[in-house]
Write a protein that binds this DNA or RNA. Sequence first.
DNA 1: GTATATGCAAACCGTTTGCATGGCT
DNA 2: AGCCATGCAAACGGTTTGCATATAC
Lengths: 143, 143
Amino acid sequence: MTPEALERGSKWLARADLRPTRQRLSLATLLVGDGRDRHVTAESLHAAVQDAGDQVSLATVYNTLRAFCEAGLMQEVVVDGSRSYFDTRIDDHPHFFMEEEGGLTDAPKAVIEIRDLPEVPEGFEVAKVDVVIRLRRKGNDAD
Amino acid sequence: MTPEALERGSKWLARADLRPTRQRLSLATLLVGDGRDRHVTAESLHAAVQDAGDQVSLATVYNTLRAFCEAGLMQEVVVDGSRSYFDTRIDDHPHFFMEEEGGLTDAPKAVIEIRDLPEVPEGFEVAKVDVVIRLRRKGNDAD
DNA sequence: GTATATGCAAACCGTTTGCATGGCT
DNA sequence: AGCCATGCAAACGGTTTGCATATAC
């Protein structure tokens, strides 16, 4: 955990007026420390924390991820009924999902063109458009 | 449950070589009896069965929905981390999802144009593209 | 000092499973 | 008769919560 990474994590928290506790700093640093976007599950982030030599309880990881989402620092991505994924990139963009290994990555935004959205049911408006491109290993003809 | 509805349900099961048990017929009839596409959760289908005056255990509803999916009669749609949705329409098409009331409906297919899918990670191919248009009530500026 | 964050373990809830019973062919 | 489907209740797994303790401000 370099000083710059810590600095990034710290500023990220400050931006959302979240108190920089040890646990939040640890998670924030892992999430945005190198400036790259990250996709995690509560479990994977918890494991990453341990690998980094820190200790944060799993419950706190869950609560903190939820707090980060509510603060607008992250967004939840629904790709799998049995796990929640969280993305540090918060704009509306498509995802690649590798079902077999549970991996989630950003897809190039230009790939998908949403022309317009007519016929939205009366009284409703579009909140968000989720695009998930499910991938499988080549040659895996199963399914 | 009209005779035609029962007939439809029955043929639907036969198409997948699934034994026409009382429970399966009941579920199949509710799902495809009127020829319209349907989106259900295990719970909602279980409730519908009871409303129709039949009795099918919740476990059987779960198992049967899974069997219908494996047989290619339905497909699962992932829109909500806490619930599984099942769709009788099995082609690749976008969905409208009303988060607040948990409602899921088909969106007109032409709405979204997927130009092409370059940059798919090495060794993978596209299995499926899920598009979920999340709707909110108009005027509900929250979030 | 006060409000808020954390940790633990227990609760939670949708879903799955083991096993005994019952039904389809 | 044999195999498969069903039902029940218990197990399961990811997530949330209640409450006591610790920390930021």
